[in-house]
Each structure stands twice: as structure tokens, then as C-alpha cells.
Design a binder for these strands. Structure first.
Ligand SMILES: [Mn+2]
Ligand SMILES: [Mn+2]
Ligand SMILES: [Mn+2]
Ligand SMILES: [Mn+2]
Lengths: 143, 143
DNA sequence: CGCGAAATGTAGCCTTGGCTACAAATTTCG
DNA sequence: CGAAATTTGTAGCCAAGGCTACATTTCGCG
């Protein structure tokens, strides 16, 4: 029998939900980066930077539009909505904090950047707060 | 133009690969848990603990079998192969270390357990080593 | 201006990972 | 033993996220 632990189920469900949001988050962050750099994000450039074929990026952008995070017109650039911008800012901040935390516990910079790309999407708001508090308490300690 | 940064692409590709392995890892770990507890893992119990419908678990187990991580016969329990056992052990160790690290930087226990369920799959071997070294250097410090 | 190159769109295919509904086997128990 | 309950299998649906191949539009430039 063994009463199935509800908190464990919660953990798995949560991980699955976050995994399904991960792609959206990376796209939004990338579009924000390109907007900052070029004034607009083109499908080809988004695809190139994310390492996917362009129809893959087109589909993802369609999903972003459907979810109210971006807008675009045929053969033109992609732009974030206000909701998209807000998400981008949040995602970017989380990315920075995760990298900083990894660095603080001794992970080399390049590796921290690589692993953070996946880890970031699974760090909850409260955990992020804990990371920030830890980093603050550490000051600029390096070794 | 802006030469597309290859290491950034690498990060995204790596995150995608790890995401696709995450499910397998959770199943293998769960099957090992059930084997330890009951001597075998039944489809219904696997599904219940992972919070999915039983045909979903059946499909996942089919994939595990295809990849040589598990074996089973119709209407019987699921068992890990040697490769499956080895993966389970590795996954379990990583899970423990990730939770310990989160705790060490100030994340409350329940939250650490929840977030770790997703984070664990994106922690590389070298990053895990760094976590272990950090934890060792910390000793049993709590506050 | 107009033509070739580049960018974008679209169609269609695949795999994974969810689900429900229903069929068949196994276990439990009166 | 046999019927009911439980477990497992199977069919078939959906969405997401990959891809290639091909059509169309836009852009750059002689
Ligand atoms: Mn990412
Ligand atoms: Mn990121
Ligand atoms: Mn997990
Ligand atoms: Mn785990």
C-alpha cells in the first residue's frame, strides 16, 4: 500500500511544469537581448543563437504570441509585449543570480554559465531570495 | 551581424538534452526506490508516485526498456538492469547533494526538496564535484 | 529597376509525454 | 471455485518541440 507522499508528487509535477516553461523563458530572454542589441529580433537570428532550425523558432514565437508575450507581423521582427518584457527582466535577473551562486560555491565561470542555462528554470522565487541572501552575506569572498 | 557565440548555443543545446533525460532519471530513481521498499516496482505504483496516469508510466517504462535500463514482462513488475541500477545510484547521489547544497546556502528543507527535483537534472558532474567540495569545506555549519 | 540572395513562411513528418476510454489479465475474497 | 475488484495493456487523441523540403517575400546591389 504505502500512502503515496503528496509532497513528492508535487515536486515532480512542479518540475514538469517548469520544464515546459523553460523554452518560453529562453526565447523571451533572447528576444530581449536582440532588441537591446539591434532594436528588433529577427527569426533567423533567434534561431541561430538558440541553435535550432528557423521553423522551430517560428513555432516557438507563435506560442509566445498566443500567450501574449510577443507580437510580430509577417516578414518583420519580433517584439515583446509589456508582459514579455517583464518576464524577460525577471528571467535575466534569475540567470545572473544563479550564475553568481554557482560561482560563489566554487563552480568555474564557463561551467557555471553552461549549467545555469538549465538550472535557472527550476529555481523558485523563494529559493532565489535565499540565494541572494547568501550572496549578500558572502560579500565579495572569492576563495 | 554579430558572430553568434558558440558557447551560448552549447548552453542551450545542453539544457535541452538534459531536459529530455530528466524524465528517464526520475523513473529510474523511482523504480529503485520501489524495488528497495517492495522488492519490485509495479506500474500502478510508479504512476501514482510520479503523479501521472498509468498509460503514461507504461510508455516511459517502454522507453527505459528500449534504452536498456529496465526489463519487465506483461502484467508483472518492472526491474532495473545493471545499467539502470548504476544510473539510479548516480541520480540518487546527485539528488542528495543538490538538496544538501540548497540547504547549506539557506533554502528551507521542504523547498529544497521541491526545487531539487528539477534542478538536479541540470547539474553536471563537475559542478556536482564543486558542490561536494563546498559542503565539505562548510562542515556541519547551520547558521 | 530588376534580379539574385537571404529571410521568412508553410507543409508535413517524427518523437516525447501527457490524457481518456476501453479491453484483457490477474488477484482477491466470499 | 468463480465473480468482483484491481491491475495492466492498448488504442487513439492532443500539444510541444525538433527537423527537412519547398514556396514566397523582402532585401541588397549592379
Ligand atoms: Mn535557460
Ligand atoms: Mn538564461
Ligand atoms: Mn527529478
Ligand atoms: Mn530526484
Amino acid at each position: 500500500m504505502s500512502e503515496t507522499d503528496p509532497s513528492q508528487i508535487k515536486g515532480f509535477n512542479r518540475a514538469r511544469e517548469r520544464a515546459s516553461r523553460a523554452l518560453l523563458e529562453d526565447y523571451v530572454e533572447m528576444i530581449a537581448d536582440l532588441a537591446a542589441e539591434f532594436g528588433e529580433a529577427r527569426i533567423t537570428e533567434i534561431a541561430a543563437r538558440l541553435g535550432v532550425a528557423h521553423p522551430t523558432a517560428t513555432k516557438a514565437v507563435a506560442r509566445l504570441k498566443r500567450e501574449g508575450l510577443a507580437v510580430s507581423r509577417p516578414y518583420r521582427g519580433v517584439f515583446l509585449t509589456e508582459a514579455g518584457e517583464a518576464l524577460a527582466e525577471q528571467v535575466r535577473a534569475r540567470h545572473r543570480t544563479v550564475v553568481a551562486l554557482l560561482r560563489a560555491v566554487g563552480v568555474p565561470e564557463d561551467l557555471a554559465e553552461l549549467d545555469a542555462e538549465g538550472i535557472e528554470h527550476h529555481v523558485s522565487t523563494r529559493t532565489l531570495k535565499a540565494f541572494e541572501a547568501f550572496l549578500a552575506s558572502q560579500g565579495g569572498k572569492t576563495g
